[in-house]
Design a protein around this nucleic acid. Structure first.
Lengths: 217, 217, 217, 217
DNA sequence: TATGAATGAGATTTCATTCAT
DNA sequence: CATGAATGAAATCTCATTCAT
């Protein structure tokens, strides 16, 4: 939930409500447009969607990269929220992991992929913290599933994050909308590859195991 | 479809060997650069890599989209070649499918994703034919694996193609190179989710099944 | 801050001490920054250096030109102070002129040059007065030197002012600091061209005359 | 006279006459406009004066600095031409030096000053060569005058170059035109400070010496 | 035909100035 | 009255596409 860009000392006594609102609007608009058009989308269009002038955008974000970083921060934060909500669920640990993965897709986490490449730097402490929080949350979900014998032990948190990002990555120009139906299906298939059958199941035919496995999803 | 038997119309008096070579060079250079820099790469850079002037590129391709279409055609064709080579393999049908998937990754098929979006159109007959050929080839591989009881029956050819594309999609700016190690790993995990155990395996513990599964890759 | 003592006329109810102080701070900051960065320096930077908000700057000065005019006024005034201090010196009148010229360089009078061009206007009475005062002061110094036979009679006050401005004009980006050593040397050479030998010196060899001349500096 | 920007090997067999003409036009227009408006003048205006599109300017010069460097080169070269012409003169060596200084003013050498500051670098070999050539030419003129006993021996080539630059430095916005009358006068005064009387003159009154001195100019 | 050159449209970014708190 | 925020206009630079050699 930390969306503040400057984690340093408070210069201005009051950040002025309308400026904060504008800043949030810009990040929200940028997030939408990055999802729809990719990270090369014109900043003017973002400003237009946010309902402000282009120079206002530059008052809040020194350059494109600064805006991208805050969008990344926003997505990391809301995705971590999802992970923590999933962890709070009762019941089968692998089901919780599945629930998180599909929820993360709805956060459009895949739109981050191209932003994490190239000149991306995790210099800022808030970014490092957000990433660490998300990784910790996911690792928690995975570890619970591993302890329950429901997750392959040879799969690391990075494997899941990269695959999740790539499989939910939007195509530029399409707004990603027509892919939605497929995305969840592909995530499901991928998770199927990570899952181990529930322990309580007695050894039986492979066909039976597979049937059980599929039934859990 | 011109079988070169008809000296009739004066359409293309002679394709002129060097012009053909130039055209191929351009497509090859474009394919490389699209993989390295994404589909927004400057056309001048493509011309430079091809060793020709930029205007020559425009003599062969009316605009960026025409070039993209030919690159798509090129990738579809060489990927279909891979699929047919995999189909020619003896042995386990699922192993053949795996072999194809990893080979397709080496064709950088993921670089096509962004090109298929937006203004992309499958108007041209040659494109439709190339896509149909590739889909037919993959469907053949999958059907053989299904018949052998090695592939889940609820997975369609489109599922595999989209997942394959997304998981191998390069990140802009990175040249995709540092991801190579991960790409094959993620493909493997995804295929694990599609695979059914070989029929001949006797019922055993789940751990044993998993070990076998992993051993096949 | 409002001591609320005089409810008299509503013209300028009171200049309010802090407002006056702000105005002076702005002019001082502007003068520094104009010297360091030239007359195109961003006004926001001036406001920052003055320790106030940019809008406050605009409350005091309608536009950039109004600020420039007050900086000109400031430099003219402090330079005239220097001229009057030099005039108060005892001794050789040409030495007094020299003292003034070098002192004026320390006032960074050369930074004014670009401000005097272009849209500059001497509309304001206070500016005309300040310029007249400075010209009068310099003319006084020169006339005394002329009367003493120490200054060429074909050199006017304008000659000296322009040359002084140009030779001390700062280079943008350098902060003028690394030129300081040269500036005084060039002023000295220039003044050498204006000087006549002291009357009391008997006719002698040119070399001797030159030695004397140099000894005075 | 070397105006080529790339002293390396010849890539293109023919530089194409119209492109060369454009390049020269751009440099000429830039030189004019830098003199009139200073080195911050909009590049679009330069392109307009040169009669070309703005992108053409960027084809020839990667950025503003590259253009500035070529203007510097142009001014250094034509000024060195002037110095060599002055050196070819018969007669009094100091008169030759004077002739050069006034000729250099007509080359607007002072417009270089702001361009030599800040991020300026003499990286390019052609620039170093042009500067060395000019310095050598001026040193030659000065040394001849020193040998003839007509120039103060405590004045170096750098002194003359900086003073010459500063005294002829144009004011932005004015086009420097209204200053022309003064510029030559101030150069004359400055040179008067560097001059020693002709050796043949017998010792006499200072007034007489001065009269002679003035008569030479 | 192939090419280097030219071009206009668009993107990013800066800054003087105005607005609202 | 003082301020941070907002804004539009302008400047730099890029790039797809057309032109002329």
């Amino acid at each position: 939930m930390t969306t503040a860009a400057e984690p340093e000392a408070r210069r201005s006594p009051r950040p002025r409500a309308d400026a904060l609102r504008n800043r949030e609007r810009i990040v929200a608009a940028a997030r939408e447009i990055f999802v729809e058009e990719g990270p090369e989308a014109p900043l003017d269009e973002i400003a237009r969607r946010a309902g402000i002038g282009n120079a206002t955008l530059y008052r809040h974000f020194a350059d494109r990269n600064a805006l991208v970083l805050d969008v990344v921060l926003s997505v990391l934060s809301s995705t971590a929220d999802r992970a923590e909500a999933a962890a709070a669920q009762e019941g089968d640990p692998f089901a919780a992991l599945r629930a998180f993965v599909h929820a993360a897709a709805d956060e459009r986490i895949g739109a981050l992929c191209p932003m994490l490449s190239g000149s991306f730097s995790f210099d800022r402490a808030d970014l490092r913290a957000a990433r660490a929080r998300l990784e910790g949350d996911i690792e928690g979900l995975m570890e619970r599933a591993r302890q329950a014998g429901r997750l392959r032990t040879d799969v690391a948190v990075g494997d899941l994050m990269v695959a999740l990002s790539q499989l939910t990555r939007p195509l530029p120009g399409t707004g990603c909308l027509n892919m939605d139906q497929f995305v969840h299906r592909h995530l499901q298939l991928f998770l199927d590859g990570l899952e181990l059958p529930a322990r309580s199941v007695l050894p039986g035919s492979a066909a039976t195991l597979e049937d059980l496995r599929r039934a859990t999803s």
